[in-house]
Design a protein around this nucleic acid. Structure first.
Lengths: 338, 338
DNA sequence: TTGTAAGCGTTATCAG
DNA sequence: CTGATAACGCTTACAA
């Protein structure tokens, strides 16, 4: 590309560099006729102010970085879309950091932000990538950020969270209400806060209902379809089988239903399956998935808007915003078999 | 964040700015003892070279931008993941531009690249966002780029493409082989090159088999689940119904199967359904989807590697790389009903 | 209203 | 092997 710079415009329009810059940034400060001359030159030459120069001078990039475990998970993809939408409306571009849950990759992307490649970041992991001094104020040691999905174990930053304990309770309560007593769980990785909390909700609901916990009915998954498949296969081998399976996300529930059908179980007549997230496909699976919906659009939007507000000078104390989950009853859950 | 700069390091290590920079970029040029002193200072202070300064000076950002219609489409998400993976291995970060197929958003992201926010771009749309002079060499008028998925109507850039005509033929031939003669198509948007080409393949296969084309059997979709739903509903209302539906992507096929089941059709006994893309969910839908697979991982990787090779000085003539599709027969297609 | 000039944080050139 | 210094392209005091 033939590079045309601010100097060229200045020469063509016969003004100084400053005037060109002002015409583009603060047109009011520039006389009508001069402004027009400059704009004409810009249009004629197709000049685009160079971001690198601009970024360095203004100390901002106009980028925010989203650090996320896996973009092929539809929940995450929806999140990114919502973020992208909100950010774009506010004049920011989104840098994507897909980490495949690798701590090294997480650190690597955080480094990029700390080096000024982005003005701030959205962090959807529970692993602390920083190495800060807990004695000193945290805000001064880390980049501007919002944390969501998986909660970090320190305060002093904005967080957008779901009440996963209550969500877990609600899910199990729905199954209890349908008369189930042997309720299995295929969890997420148990070193994540989301899975731990849902697990806690699961246990609380059962205990409150006077049902004894059974280790055999809890299987650790990894939020991927395959682990729903394997988990369900294991459950079906048990001498006393469950009558319902609470999967900690929809992907695993889809895997579960698949195995059940392959083995001639009717869902929900023989076995109820409950998911989590309410991804698009949950409506189209047969039977349609009963699931705990997370408000993806809202989460993504709030995250982006909150971060950008901070970048634009919002100094209010960091807060934890809770978003509401909602049980969506479709066809994959039904009364416990006799 | 307390900003520590190259100056601070220079002071602490008692060397000049230049030496600090050299220690980090070209350690070989620096004496062992000095190097150690600098590295110690860097480690102690947690110094990260500022990208903005670096970018401006070196005239590169280390970013590539991926401009894509919709990240929530699993095929696109897989593409982005593959790109991200390959780019990250080569030391590049990926800027995401989700355009929701809006021409304005496409232009907007291209502008960002032209302004130097990224070193090059991957462009997955068929709409020309440029305003170049066809007389002059194109390469000098547009940023370094690779085009894929939907083909742009000009040459002189690298492209990574599927043979959509042949893929369409193969899909229809599979249905013909099963004895189907009334084969419907739910297409993508007919202003896209991918849909046009698949359509062409569809027509060719039918004509070659001596089957007359029937406009009523062709319905324009938009690659979203809903349009598969609506398209199928329309087909079912026809006096003489088709016995097979070729959907131009898997999402629409999933929508189609859903409608069929709701209306008590057995798939594939009463109606065959064929998809395109081979997204992850196509294995888990019931019946599992017969589909034309695109090698997503390969496409993403090639795109990223090709672009980065260009950015690193590859001057070979632009080429069009073809990737191979593959018909994957699962359960959603079967012999035509009598 | 406009121009001059400093400076953002690097890297690269050129001496020493 | 190391240091001084210019330059990358832009914005923004400050001066005129």
């Amino acid at each position: 590309m033939a590079k045309v710079g601010i100097k060229d415009i200045a020469r063509i329009a016969n003004v100084s560099l400053a005037t060109v810059s002002r015409t583009l940034r603060t047109p009011d400060l520039v006389q009508e006729t001069t402004r027009q001359r400059v704009l004409d030159a810009v249009a004629a030459s197709g000049y685009k102010p160079n971001r690198m120069g601009m970024n360095l001078r203004t100390q901002r990039t106009g980028n925010i970085m989203a650090i996320i475990p896996d973009i092929t998970n539809p929940f995450n993809a929806g999140l990114i879309r919502a973020i992208e939408e909100a950010a774009s409306n506010l004049g920011y571009a989104v840098l994507l950091g897909d980490t495949q849950s690798s701590p090294e990759r997480e650190k690597q992307y955080v480094d990029l932000v700390e080096a000024g490649q982005a003005d701030g970041m959205l962090y959807f992991s529970g692993r602390n990538p920083f190495d800060f001094d807990p004695e000193k104020p945290i805000a001064e040691q880390i980049p501007t950020m919002v944390n969501s999905n998986e909660e970090l174990d320190f305060d002093g930053i904005d967080k957008v969270m779901l009440d996963n304990v209550q969500a877990g309770r609600d899910a199990v309560q729905h199954l209890l209400d349908l008369g189930h007593t042997r309720i299995a769980a295929i969890t997420g990785p148990l070193n994540t806060q989301s899975a731990q909390s849902r697990m806690q909700g699961y246990q609380q609901a059962l205990l409150d209902a006077g049902i004894e916990l059974d280790d055999k009915l809890v299987i650790e998954g990894d939020y991927q379809i395959d682990s729903g498949v394997e988990g369900t296969e294991r459950l079906l081998r048990l001498k006393t089988r469950p009558t319902a399976i609470f999967c900690f996300n929809d992907d695993m529930a889809i895997g579960a239903i698949n195995v059940l059908k392959s083995n001639d179980y009717r869902v929900p007549e023989d076995m109820s399956v409950l998911g989590f997230d309410d991804i698009l496909y949950s409506t189209y699976v047969r039977p349609a998935l009963t699931t705990v919906a997370q408000p993806v659009e809202e989460i993504g939007r709030i995250c982006a808007e909150k971060l950008i507000a901070r970048l634009q000078g919002d100094e209010s104390p960091p807060e934890k915003t809770f978003v509401a989950h909602k049980l969506i009853v479709r066809e994959s859950t039904g009364p416990a078999p006799k």
